[in-house]
Amino acid sequence: MNGMERVMAAMNGRPANRRAVSLVLSLYGARLTKCPLKLYYTDPAAYARGQSAVYNTFKPDILFAPFALPFEGEAFGSRVRYFEDQPPNLASPAINSADEIGRLCVPDIEDHPKLNFFRESIRLMAKEHGRDVPIAAIVLDPIGLSAMIMGLDGWLNTLLFDGEGVKRMLNLVIPYFADRANALLEEGASFIVIPGAVANPMIVSRSIVETTALPVLREAYALVNGPIVMHSGGAPLAPFIDMFTGLPNVAGFVLNGGDNLVRARDAAGRKALLIGNVDGPTLSKRSPEAIRSECMDVLLNRENDPCFILGTSGADIAYDTPPENIHAFLNAAEEEGGMATF
């Protein structure tokens, strides 16, 4: 079986020759190809070369399109800063409050250079690897995108006190979100991963999630022409997963490090895909043996769960992570493969 077949098996609850493995190695491709990050995050060919190196080195079961969420804010006018050893980050938002929404210009999905970087990267990745391995495109939902454009404090203030501002902002970003997600699917993305970092009761209150975020997500996700996997975005997801299970096109969830797997499965239902939940960004700080042991614990916990993919949680695996740590992760799945009972 190849990665595509393993992931499809997990999504459909069917047996596979071993557990599928998802490692967020978007950044790591730059290390493997010794590509400067400014080039890596602006040149689709450089990015695709990096992902080919990831595939050839580790054979993960999912490849990731650029994990560079601040670029979505940049397309609206936010300022982004590049680094030598980590993905770009948001330096300042495009606007600071709902009063400035009128200044925003919605970027052209077809023509914006930063958005084209994602599209072209996916096109190249799909051409090279699309038959063997699914390609995950990472897109912010309208609630998270608004924070990337307005800054978290400005957006929280709007969500809490300015219903009209919320409507004006979402009227701009919901159609943009759907067009962008569908454009990436057309280029060859297999599914859309959506970090729900803001639409989470740990960030905004449960009542805001229920009254504002869920209706927005319901409307926006229904416009997407492919499967969606909701990502914890770094906040606990297991306690709230039941809130998101009925959303249109949602096929599964990437859990947060520390989320209780049993609780997550109970809340998500038997058939939802779950991915997790070994913390990815800190893989560099553990020994290969410790990583293998942590992975085996996760696999043991999920040994009879066919809709589970062993994966890293959180953001990108760090640039300085030794390759042997990543191999240890993969080896755990190979090792379990022989004794899997699902």
């Binding site: 929280l156 740990m202 905004v204």
Partner: peptide, 11 residues
């Protein structure tokens, strides 16, 4: 408790 949000802290 897990159901106190950042937004509540903000306010």
């Amino acid at each position: 408790e897990e159901d106190v949000s950042l937004a509540q802290g903000y306010i």
